[in-house]
Design a protein around this nucleic acid. Structure first.
Lengths: 269, 269
DNA sequence: AACTATAGTCCACATTGTGAAACAGCATTC
DNA sequence: GAATGCTGTTTCACAATGTGGACTATAGTT
C-alpha cells in the first residue's frame, strides 16, 4: 500500500464491512472485525457520520449506511451515460422474452449489476443493483474480459494480477484454468457474444452481448439469464438475436458507428 | 471541526465536487477548487481510485465516480427497509393519479428523494433518486420536520443549528421565518399531512404525508406533486386520501400499529 | 523555441492521527 | 448490592503519518 493513506484507507475499510448480511454495526463490533482500536474507529465513524455516509438512530446507537451514500451512488449511476439509454431496452427485452435481463459492467475481477428488469416467468432469477458476480463464470464477464483483453485496457491487467491464474469453481462446468478461459474469450470475441451454461450456478444459464460507446469500447454488457430448462439451445438462438438488436440500439445512442447521440434532458421541470 | 480527521474529511471533500453539472474532473482542476495541493489531491484520489470510488478511462485521464460508489449506494438503499415496501405503493399512486409520486427522507436541512415514479400526464415534474430539496419549502420536509420536532430527535436540533433561523426564499410564497415555519409544523402535526403551494417553485404544488415505522417514528414521507393548475384544492383532497391510504399500508408493513411484518426474500434464486 | 498547461515524484518536516489508559453508563451475574 | 462485563466516549503524550514546496516529465499552444 502506497504511503500517506492510512486513515483514508481505514475509513473505507469501515464502509466495506456493511453488507446485506450485516447492515448494522456497533462501534465495538466494527472495531474488532477490522482490527482498529475503539477510539480510532470512533473518530473515523465520526467523520463518516458528519459526511452523512453512515447514520445512527440515536446518539450511542449502532451505525447504518446513510443518505449521502445513496446520493453518491445515484450520482455515480447517472454519470455512466449508458444507464439511461439501456433502461427502456431492458424493459423491452424482459417484456418480450419473459426472462430477467440485466445491464452489467466490469469491476475488477467481477461484473457489477447496474440495472435489471426481473422476468415475469415463475422462478425467474432475482437480481439487484450492486450485485457482483465473478467475471470468469458469467456470460457478460466473458464478453467484457474479451473486450478488455483486445483493447489492452487496464481492466485486463487488473484481472490478471488479481486472479493470478486462480479461477474459483462454482459448479462442475465452471472454467477454472486460464488457458481454457483464454480460448473462451477468443471465441466470445469472434462470435460477438458469450454464454455461461451452468458455470455460475447449477440450473442457471445466461447469454451476454457487449454494449459499445462512440469510441468502439465495450463499456457494458446486456444479459438474459434464467433456468436451463427454459433457455434451451434453440430458444437461446432467438434470445441472442433480440439481445443483439437491443445492444445495437443502445450502442447507437452512445454514438457508435457515427450515429448522433440525442441529448437527454433531466431535472425538475 | 474535531481533531484528527483532516485527510478523511478531505477525501470526502473530493467526492463532494462531483455533481450532475460536473461529472468529470482533472487533477489540477479539482485541486484548485477545493484548495488542495496537487500532491495531496493526487494521493487522496489514489486511495479513492484503489477503492473504486472514482475511476478514469486511462491512466492520466480525468476522474469520474466509480463502481464502488454505485454498489455502496445500492446497498445503502436496501438498508433502508421501507424502500421495498414503498415501491409498489409509489407505482400504484402514480398509476391512479397520473402525477409524479416520490418517497423522501430528511437529510440535514434538506429532503432526499429515495425513490419516485414519474406521472404519465404531460408536463409531469421530473425527479431523480438522490435529488435534494430544502426541507422548509417542501411538503414532505414540513411533515418530517414536524415529526422530528415532536420526537425531539437530533434531526430537529441539526436543522436548527444548520439554518440558524435563516430560511432561503425561492418564490414569493416560500416560508422564510422560523415563527411562521413553527406554526406550519404545528398544523402539519395536527392534520397529519402538509402542503407546499408554490413555495419551492412557481407553479409547483405538493402534498406530503408521513410513513411511520414499528416504533411510531416518521422515517420517511410520501409525496404527490405537480402543476398547480391541475392540483386544485378539490383535487388535492382526493389525492390526500389516496396518499394517506398508501402511507398507512407502508407503515403497516413496517410494523406500525402492531401489525406483523412479512419477511422479504432477496438474492439469486 | 519559448511558454504554459497538464500529471506525477521526491523528501524534509511537523502537523495530524494514533492508541493506551481511564471514565461513565447500563445490564447481567454473583 | 457489590462485582463484573460489556457498551460508547474523552483525554493526551508521542511519533508515524500525511503534508506541500520544489522539481521533473510530457503534451499542447503561440
Amino acid at each position: 500500500m502506497p504511503g500517506g493513506t492510512q486513515s483514508v484507507t481505514r475509513a473505507f475499510a469501515i464502509l466495506k464491512v456493511f453488507s446485506d448480511a450485516r447492515r448494522e454495526w456497533t462501534l465495538a463490533d466494527l472495531a474488532r472485525t477490522i482490527e482498529l482500536t475503539k477510539p480510532t474507529a470512533l473518530r473515523l465513524l465520526g467523520v463518516l457520520e458528519r459526511e452523512g455516509m453512515v447514520q445512527r438512530g440515536r446518539p450511542g446507537g449502532s451505525y447504518r449506511l446513510g443518505p449521502r451514500a445513496i446520493e453518491l451512488g445515484a450520482l455515480a449511476q447517472r454519470s455512466i451515460d449508458f444507464q439511461a439509454s439501456a433502461r427502456p431496452e431492458l424493459e423491452r427485452l424482459a417484456w418480450m422474452t419473459g426472462e430477467t435481463t440485466t445491464l452489467e459492467m466490469l469491476a475488477g475481477t467481477e461484473i457489477l449489476v447496474l440495472d435489471f428488469v426481473r422476468g415475469r416467468r415463475p422462478g425467474s432469477w432475482g437480481e439487484y443493483v450492486g450485485a457482483r458476480w465473478p467475471a470468469h463464470a458469467a456470460a457478460t464477464g466473458k464478453v467484457l474480459l474479451a473486450a478488455a483483453r483486445r483493447e489492452r485496457s487496464e481492466g485486463w491487467e487488473q484481472f490478471l494480477s488479481a486472479t493470478r491464474g486462480r479461477l474459483a469453481r462454482f459448479t462442475p462446468r465452471t472454467i477454472t484454468t486460464m488457458t481454457r478461459l483464454g480460448e473462451e474469450l477468443t471465441q466470445a470475441q469472434r462470435r460477438g457474444y458469450a454464454t455461461a451454461i451452468e458455470e455460475l450456478e447449477p440450473g442457471y444459464v445466461a447469454i451476454g452481448v457487449p454494449v459499445e460507446n462512440h469510441a468502439g469500447r465495450s463499456v457494458a454488457a446486456l444479459c438474459i439469464g434464467g433456468q436451463s430448462s427454459r433457455l434451451t439451445r434453440d430458444r437461446r438462438a432467438v434470445l441472442l438475436r433480440a439481445l443483439q438488436e437491443s445492444a445495437r440500439r443502445i450502442s447507437a445512442q452512445l454514438g457508435a458507428n457515427g450515429a448522433t447521440r440525442p441529448a437527454v434532458a433531466a431535472g425538475r421541470g
